[in-house]
């Protein structure tokens, strides 16, 4: 059954699998309501968006929200490590593509945003159907490579494509040693966070414990780079420190807000007698 476009759009927030199995029924209920009111309802649209998003984030499976937070913190550490390696090894220690005036700046920002989205897509994809999950997982490594390789090489050699991806491999060891012991576990955990969408852990308690451990580790890493101005590539390092920190905090705030949505929605209105 082909749904009218208005209802297809209204249901977009829901995972694809759910839309296929339940979409026609939800659309019918929406259409009945619209007929009664004589117009489409914004309240309905808002509720669908919230509900669909909560479902995507895996509202029923606690621990997913924490994973998103962990992903943010880990990415923050990785970016910090890369900023250091990129400055020292790609640009000869003189400048950074992170500089506002640098030609690679907007590339870096745009690709950075992609990285946020893709990293969040790991846990998000886990709540969707298997096809979505596979796409999210498949996209994660190449985008990671793109994010961490293209900007630097773009500035220096005007190289793109395979060459820049191979060049990334040169930087990896320096990146790991550069940001101390934290980057290696962070890289490992980032991979795990991305891949866990492939096969969700069966036991909720174990998942929560792992997610909590990731958040603690990420927090330590970020705090370390935040408070030490002498930490190479850290968030407190250099002229662009403020902008980098602001970008990270803004992205983190958005994802934490999404995570909060997951935690709060199913627990809303605990008692029937409370409302009016």
């Amino acid at each position: 059954m082909r749904l009218p476009r208005r209802y297809r759009v209204a249901l977009l927030a829901y995972p694809a699998g759910y839309r296929v199995t339940r979409g026609p029924e939800l659309a019918a209920t929406l259409a009945d309501g619209d007929d009664d009111r004589g117009r489409p309802s914004m309240r309905e649209a808002g509720a669908l968006a919230g509900r669909g998003l909560a479902m995507r984030l895996g509202a029923a499976r606690s621990g997913e929200g924490l994973l998103v937070v962990a992903a943010v913190l880990i990415l923050a550490t990785l970016l910090s490590g890369f900023a250091w390696a990129e400055r020292v090894y790609l640009l000869g220690g003189t400048a950074s593509v992170w500089s506002t005036g640098g030609p690679g700046f907007w590339w870096t920002m745009a690709l950075g945003v992609c990285a946020w989205v893709v990293l969040a897509a790991g846990p998000l994809g886990a709540a969707g159907d298997p096809r979505r999950r596979r796409i999210a997982v498949a996209l994660t490594p190449p985008l990671f490579l793109l994010v961490f390789s293209a900007p630097g090489r773009l500035v220096i050699h005007d190289e793109l494509g395979l060459g820049s991806i191979l060049a990334y491999l040169e930087v990896v060891p320096h990146m790991i040693t550069g940001n101390g012991v934290l980057t290696l576990p962070a890289l490992t955990l980032a991979t795990w966070v991305a891949l866990r969408g492939l096969r969700p852990l069966s036991e909720a308690g174990r998942r929560r414990a792992l997610a909590a451990a990731l958040v603690v580790l990420g927090s330590i890493a970020v705090v370390r780079t935040l408070i030490r101005p002498d930490f190479p590539g850290g968030y407190a390092d250099g002229a662009l420190a403020d902008l980098r920190t602001a970008t990270f905090l803004a992205a983190a705030a958005v994802l934490v807000a999404l995570a909060a949505l997951v935690r709060l929605r199913p627990r809303r209105a605990p008692a029937a007698g409370r409302g009016r």
Partner: peptide, 23 residues
């Protein structure tokens, strides 16, 4: 059916409960 529940809930609650499709 779905919309039948929405209408009946509104009736039973004296109009206080307006279930959205999402809820």
């Amino acid at each position: 059916h779905g919309y039948g529940i929405v209408k009946k809930a509104a009736l039973l609650s004296g109009g206080a409960v307006k279930l959205t499709t999402g809820t």
